[in-house]
Amino acid sequence: MLNALTAAVLALSAVVPPPSPVTIEVLSLKGDGCAAGSAAVAMSLDNQAFTVTYSDFIVQAHGSDVRRTCEISLRVNHPDDYTYGIAQTDYRGFAHIGAGSRGIMKGHYFFPGMPTRHSSHAYPGPLSDNWQATDQLPPGDVLHGPCRQRKPLTVNAELRVVGKSATSFMTMDSTDSSVSSTFRLSWRKC
């Protein structure tokens, strides 16, 4: 009975996105996978998602294990009577992984002082193709930011190549103008 009541309350508190424009701004960008100016963030016109597009996020093996990371701190500017959480993440890129090696994509995001959501996807070689990873949370598991405090959202991404292949590489970039990462939002009234 309590679970049904909790689900009903969550369903009622989940709402459509704010009708007024929502903007997003990059507060900081750091890591060896995203030099200054190599990542762009944009909010969708319907306020239901934001995208992160990387222009130079690549990890290249030279016969040893190697990794690159990118950390972006964001401020989502929305009406005071709303809060948001990440309901789904979609990552994509290209991988050329030699036999006996593997590529690994890891992502996590969090609001300061709140639990961190983690995801990890491995791509064993041989592989030379586009890759895509999607992580979707059940509605009751979405972690929403605090209602009255505007805390920044931190998004971390990591690419890693493990193995002895000297020609393996993995990217999370958008040379074809497609979006590399999409963060679908779950809105809630405060």
Rank of each mutant, 00 (worst) to 15 (best):
K164S: 15
Y109L: 09
N156W: 09
S44N: 11
P124V: 13
S44K: 07
V179G: 05
T83C: 09
G93R: 07
Y84F: 13
G125A: 06
P19F: 03
P19V: 07
F110H: 11
F183M: 03
F50R: 01
P79M: 08
R92P: 03
L143I: 07
G93A: 06
T154C: 04
S165T: 13
N47Q: 15
G113M: 00
Y91F: 02
S119R: 02
I58A: 02
L29P: 02
G37Q: 02
S177T: 15
P17W: 12
A4H: 15
S13G: 07
T6M: 12
S13W: 04
P18E: 07
V142D: 02
A166E: 13
H62C: 04
P126R: 08
D32L: 01
L159G: 09
Q48K: 15
E25I: 02
S181P: 09
D90P: 04
Y123V: 11
H108D: 07
L74N: 04
L153Y: 03
A157L: 10
A7W: 10
Q88R: 14
D32H: 00
A133R: 02
L153Q: 07
S165G: 14
M43W: 01
S20N: 10
A39N: 00
T171N: 14
D56N: 11
M170E: 12
C190D: 14
V9E: 07
R68K: 12
R67G: 06
H144G: 00
S177Q: 15
Y84H: 06
L2I: 14
A133D: 05
P21Y: 06
I24Q: 05
G107E: 01
M172R: 10
T167E: 14
P138H: 08
R75A: 03
S174G: 15
R148H: 00
A87Y: 08
L10T: 08
S55F: 01
C34F: 03
S28Y: 03
P112W: 00
E25G: 02
G85E: 07
C70D: 05
R160Q: 13
R150L: 01
N47T: 11
I86H: 09
Y123A: 11
R150E: 01
V161P: 09
Y54V: 02
G125I: 05
R75T: 08
G145V: 06
N3G: 10
Q136D: 11
M114I: 01
V155H: 04
A35V: 01
R184G: 15
T116M: 06
S13H: 04
P79H: 08
G93E: 07
N130T: 13
A36E: 00
S174N: 15
V59P: 06
S181I: 04
F94Q: 11
T69H: 03
K164Y: 15
T134W: 10
G163W: 06
M43T: 08
I72M: 10
T23F: 02
P146T: 05
D129H: 14
R102G: 10
D80Y: 08
P152L: 01
R188C: 14
D135H: 12
A122M: 12
S28W: 03
S174F: 10
Y91D: 04
F50G: 04
I104F: 07
I24H: 05
Y84T: 07
L185S: 11
Y84G: 01
A7Y: 10
I86C: 11
S64I: 11
C34K: 01
A8F: 08
V22T: 13
T23N: 06
Y91R: 03
A39P: 03
F94G: 05
C70A: 12
Y84M: 09
